[in-house]
Design a protein around this nucleic acid. Structure first.
Lengths: 179, 179
DNA sequence: CAAATGCCTTAACCTAGATTAAGAAATGAA
DNA sequence: TTCATTTCTTAATCTAGGTTAAGGCATTTG
């Protein structure tokens, strides 16, 4: 994962901000190339469909970056909302800086690393969504993000897994009484 | 999309190969950092689950690159199989070269571009898999890849969409008789 | 503190898509 | 060409997970 120092090198204007639970940092439709490095706390990115239902695309806690890379890369307005699940301390920086001609080789390499890791996560996620049951997806989530489980509300975990809170509750019940 | 010239610059050992329909280029478990640029033809990458069922992760036709970026980035054995849907002409190159210290800034920038675009595709795919019906996913596929529709067998399109061939056939039937 | 709002669970019912099966059409090999 | 194999379709049945609804806990907020 890309660290804070790297970001401060990439964008000299990066600023630390303290944000409150529920505070919205990016809205669908925004023309923004901002990204957020989480110093402390927990954020999420998500879409809202025509029926008003939220679909969580990612969580990001300490040491992670959250942004709408898709729309930024193609200069589209944001598809994702980003807001805070906990009061958080974040570093706000501009991903436009990642494209500037005056980046060093070292910085370019770090950027490529960041992107490659994100691809890895997404590749796994797509394969999971296509091939395994909700129960297995939940088990995998528990193994992959053990520290998030107690910080993220159930309904958001359900949304991340692509199921309803009711379905997750049922699955948890089944696991509790020994499968 | 990264072009052929860029690849030849990145890996001087890149070689053109003519491969037959059905020919397997990468197997799950392989320790390989090969990637394939498609000059002409059509390849696919996919997993096979415990029940022996195939799940297609991606197609790649003229001008595209196909590889198991996840396992390559983390030096894991391959999770994906890659084989040919049509007789194809491809350029085989080694993604290890993308990490070497002597790449030019220009080449690093092209690599970052390639990765960012892949992220964009995957972000859209994850959101689709989580939030829209099989029928809508098929419609989106038709719009996104109109040239592939007649070259890829239905059952593979179904697999890419995360549904069974029977379900896709039913959907096509419904669309044919005016929704 | 109490009221209010959200969060989690349970349970009854419903539906999209899976499974199974079988026949028709296309493809390929000899 | 013929036979065999794979692909596509249709239809009957089944099931994971969605929907709706209602009650019990938490946690905000005044």
């Amino acid at each position: 994962m890309q660290g804070l120092n790297d970001i401060l090198n990439l964008d000299k204007n990066a600023k630390t901000r303290f944000v409150k639970k529920g505070e919205m940092l990016l809205r669908e439709g925004d023309e923004s190339s901002l990204a957020f490095y989480i110093e402390k706390g927990l954020l999420r990115s998500y879409t809202i469909d025509e029926k008003g239902k939220e679909h969580i695309f990612s969580f990001a806690s300490e040491g992670w970056i959250i942004a709408d890379i898709d729309s930024q890369e193609f200069n589209h307005p944001a598809e994702l909302f980003i807001d805070c699940i906990e009061d958080s301390e974040i570093v706000v920086f501009d991903r436009k800086c990642f494209k500037l001609a005056d980046l060093s080789e070292q910085q370019l390499r770090e950027n490529a690393n960041l992107l490659a890791r994100r691809i890895a996560v997404l590749q796994k996620r797509v394969i999971m969504l296509m091939s395994v049951s909700a129960q297995e997806r939940y088990s995998t989530f528990l193994k992959s993000f053990p520290k998030l489980v107690n910080r993220v509300p159930q309904r958001m975990i359900a949304s991340y897994l692509g199921i309803t809170p009711e379905a997750l509750s049922k699955i948890r019940g089944q696991i509790a009484k020994g499968k």
